[in-house]
């Protein structure tokens, strides 16, 4: 019998989680590096979903080589925001523009952010980038419509249509596709992953695929010594 696509399982997990109140769920991610083929579909899917400008990336995929020849190993490490339990980016923000939401997401309020980049400096994972107001079509005859098109983050519609836009001059980062979650959709990096390497769900739900996969394997996290307690695990 053919095995069910994990996307269908995770969709059911998501539907179950969304029925709970925000403080009753804890979003987390698990990335199985053994299944990641380094296609960068998640990176591109994310860039397209959020109309990300040059210099802003939410989910790069790093290529790492380890070992000594001939015992070498190549790994692809996708790096979203780790939505840390003790995020060092939150405490350094002088205006409270970034905060830990009840469901575990670390959010940015673009309207409050002053662009001091303290959070960018404080993130041990380089997960935050800075929207400098650049466009991919800069220096060309015409700015293309997609660069100023609407995108949805933190359940709000945003537009990068000039220096007066609240997004321009703000810190930016992955937010596990908050607006998609509200609509009952899985994050775009999860649905675009051709190797099905990214697991997403409610870490408080014992029945969820992410919890079961975490339990079955030997997950690890990056830079645990910082005390940030990241909510993204790797296998």
């Amino acid at each position: 019998m053919a095995q069910e696509d994990i996307l269908i399982t995770m969709q059911a997990d998501l539907d179950r989680a969304m029925k709970k109140s925000a403080d009753q769920r804890r979003w987390g991610m698990l990335i199985d590096t053994r299944k990641c083929v380094g296609c960068h579909a998640c990176t591109i899917g994310c860039v397209a979903e959020y109309k990300l400008p040059p210099g802003v990336v939410y989910r790069p995929v790093m290529e790492q080589m380890t070992g000594i020849f001939p015992a070498v190993k190549q790994q692809f490490i996708p790096r979203p925001c780790f939505q840390c339990e003790n995020p060092s980016c939150v405490s350094v923000c002088p205006v409270g523009a970034t905060k830990k939401e009840p469901d575990g997401i670390v959010s940015i309020n673009y309207e409050t952010c002053i662009g001091c980049r303290s959070c960018v400096a404080a993130c041990p994972y380089g997960a935050r980038t800075f929207d400098r107001g650049n466009d991919y079509t800069e220096g060309t005859a015409q700015k293309q419509p997609y660069e100023a098109a609407v995108f949805y983050e933190y359940d709000k519609a945003w537009r990068r249509d000039g220096h007066s836009s609240a997004v321009v001059g703000s810190a930016r980062k992955c937010h596990f596709c908050t607006s998609r979650l509200t609509q009952g959709l899985l994050p775009v990096c999860v649905t675009t992953c051709i190797g099905r390497a990214t697991y997403f769900g409610d870490l408080k739900d014992e029945q969820s695929l992410i919890r079961q996969t975490l339990k079955a394997g030997k997950p690890y996290r990056f830079k645990e010594e910082t005390g940030n307690d990241p909510q993204v695990y790797y296998l």
Binding site: V57, E63, I77, Y125, R132, N134
Partner: peptide
């Protein structure tokens, strides 16, 4: 901040 991050997504400001 993490090994390989500069090569992962290239831009003048990254």
């Amino acid at each position: 901040p993490m090994p390989g991050i500069v090569q992962a997504f290239q831009d003048e400001s990254l």
